[in-house]
C-alpha cells in the first residue's frame, strides 16, 4: 500500500487533489481511498488530505500517520508546520515553489522536487494572481516525479472530477509534468 499526504491551506483544493489522484489511480485499476483531515476546515488554515492506493482492496479505515510521499501546495507551510512528520525514508516531497529543489533544507533522507505551480496556474487562468488554484498542476508534477500514476490518467481524472475549467486544469497538469524539477529529474 502506498499512502500520500497533501498539505495545503483551506481553500487551496488539497481535498480535491486527493480525490482526483484517487480517481486517476482507480482508472488505472488500483484500489483507492482518499479523505481530508477529519475536522473543521477554515480558509487559509493549514489542512491536509490523503490518498491510499493498493493492488488489493483497501480495508484500513483509520487515518494515515506514516505517508510514503507528500505534496505541498503552499511553500510557507514548510515554515509553519512540520510537513515531514511521519514521512517514510526516501519519500518524495513535491513542493509548489519557484525555488530550486536544492534550496529547501529538509532532512536528506527525503527527496525534494519543486514546480512553480503558481505561475502555471496563473498562466492558465486558474484562480487569481494572489490566490492561484494549484491543486491540479501539482498532480502533474507528482505523476512525473513518483511514476505512480500516468499523466494521461491524471488528465482524464481532472477532466472528470473538476467541474470548472477542465481544459485549463488539464493543460496546467501537463505543463507541471514537463516543468517539475527534482533530484534525478532533469528536463
Amino acid at each position: 500500500m502506498i499512502e500520500i499526504r497533501i498539505h495545503g491551506r483551506g481553500g487551496q483544493g488539497a481535498v480535491v487533489a486527493s480525490q482526483v489522484l484517487a480517481a486517476a489511480l482507480f482508472q488505472e485499476g488500483k484500489c483507492v481511498q482518499s479523505f481530508p483531515t477529519f475536522g473543521v476546515e477554515r480558509r487559509g488554515a493549514p489542512v491536509a488530505a490523503f490518498t491510499r492506493m493498493d493492488d488489493r482492496e483497501i480495508r484500513l479505515r483509520c487515518e494515515i500517520y506514516e505517508p510514503d510521499h507528500l505534496m505541498v501546495l503552499d511553500p510557507t507551510l514548510i515554515e509553519a508546520i512540520d510537513v515531514t512528520t511521519g514521512l517514510k525514508e526516501n519519500g518524495w516531497i513535491v513542493i509548489n515553489s519557484d525555488k530550486h529543489f536544492g534550496e529547501f533544507h529538509l532532512p536528506s533522507k527525503f527527496r525534494i522536487a519543486t514546480v512553480d505551480a503558481n505561475a502555471i496556474a496563473v498562466k492558465h487562468n486558474l484562480g487569481t494572481r494572489t490566490a492561484p488554484i494549484v491543486n491540479t498542476a501539482i498532480l502533474g508534477a507528482f505523476s512525473r516525479i513518483t511514476e505512480l500514476v500516468s499523466i494521461e490518467a491524471i488528465v482524464a481524472a481532472v477532466k472528470e472530477e473538476v467541474p470548472l475549467n477542465p481544459e485549463e486544469n488539464a493543460a496546467a497538469c501537463r505543463e507541471a509534468y514537463e516543468k517539475v524539477r527534482g533530484q534525478n529529474i532533469t528536463p
Binding site: F26, C31, V32, Q33, S34, F35, F38, R61, C62
Partner: peptide, 12 residues
C-alpha cells in the same frame, strides 16, 4: 455511517 471514516472518505 461513521463520520469522516465513511462520510468524507472516497472509495470506489
Amino acid at each position: 455511517l461513521d463520520a469522516f471514516f465513511l462520510s468524507h472518505t472516497s472509495e470506489p
